[in-house]
């Protein structure tokens, strides 16, 4: 369970981060926030104008999806709601973030980005599909809505999957990227801290490891269909004995790269508002 002290500049603005709802929201919201930050890398430098718009829009979508998830933890009608939501996104120490390490990895080349995009968005849609049946009304409503928005991301990812696997050079490079991405993508399903309680309350109706099976079913079928099954990792079901991102253990790609840049303004000017 989280024992880390929140930073002094935001401690008074942060809600209790240890409630079942907070633990669930941080896992999902942080995945989206950090994915959005990495997607925005392509703004201005993507291989084509269409892909520039695609990843710029995906970045904008994911950061705002995170914002919306965080809003479930604050009084949205309060005058300082914006400040409190921003504090959740930007006012935590690196070890208080709960996203999977895959999300914090640098964008790599465009093929690597597309491999992560494909693996992540399939996982996100599986998770949202389960959350649409959450016992928490706002979680269920939000998941239902975001599922419709994410369909545009998934369509984009699947179109690139078909395009790349349909050509020799694309298959080779995309396959190599997937070999790197897929073992890390399995950690999107590392159980959330205290997940038994979150599942028992129906907040998350399906356990993370069961969501992993649903994800694997789709991913394996797509790869077999593309005759690329050899890129699947030999170990498809990690035991998650060592703590990963869901328990606050991150790589330097986050602690020395994403986090310092993402939070620089917030740390320099606590309480700053746009």
């Amino acid at each position: 369970m989280t024992t880390t002290q929140s930073p002094a500049w935001s401690a008074e603005l942060l809600p209790d981060l240890t409630t079942p709802l907070a633990r669930l929201v941080l896992a999902i919201g942080d995945d989206e926030l950090i994915s959005g930050h990495r997607a925005q890398h392509w703004t201005g430098v993507a291989p084509s104008l269409e892909q520039d718009m695609a990843f710029s829009t995906i970045a904008q979508d994911e950061v705002n999806h995170a914002d919306t998830w965080y809003s479930l933890l604050v009084d949205r009608e309060a005058e300082d709601a914006r400040l409190r939501i921003d504090s959740l996104g930007l006012g935590r120490l690196p070890e208080q973030y709960r996203h999977a390490v895959l999300c914090e990895r640098p964008p790599g080349d465009f093929v690597w980005t597309l491999a992560r995009h494909w693996a992540y968005d399939h996982a996100d849609v599986v998770r949202l599909g389960a959350l649409a049946d959450s016992s928490h009304d706002d979680v269920a409503g939000l998941a239902t809505k975001l599922l419709r928005e994410e369909r545009y991301h998934l369509l984009h990812a699947d179109q690139w999957f078909d395009r790349l696997t349909g050509m020799d050079r694309g298959r080779a490079e995309f396959g190599a990227a997937l070999r790197d991405v897929l073992p890390q993508a399995l950690w999107l399903f590392e159980p959330i801290e205290g997940e038994d309680e979150i599942v028992a309350e129906g907040l998350l109706p399906t356990a993370s490891t069961d969501l992993r099976e649903r994800w694997l079913e789709g991913v394996e079928a797509a790869l077999r269909g593309a005759d690329l099954a050899e890129v699947l990792p030999s170990q498809l079901r990690p035991t998650y004995d060592e703590p990963g991102g869901r328990r606050g253990v991150h790589s330097e790609d986050f602690t020395l790269d994403v986090w310092p840049e993402m939070t620089a303004l917030h740390r320099a000017h606590p309480g700053a508002q746009w």
């Binding site: 849609v125 649409a132 049946d133 409503g141 239902t144 599922l147 419709r148 369909r151 998934l154 699947d158």
Partner: peptide, 14 residues
């Protein structure tokens, strides 16, 4: 129509 024909809507979309 929506964006993707292969995905089912959640059966209790509200």
């Amino acid at each position: 129509g929506g964006p993707v024909s292969t995905l089912e809507r959640p059966n209790h979309a509200r």
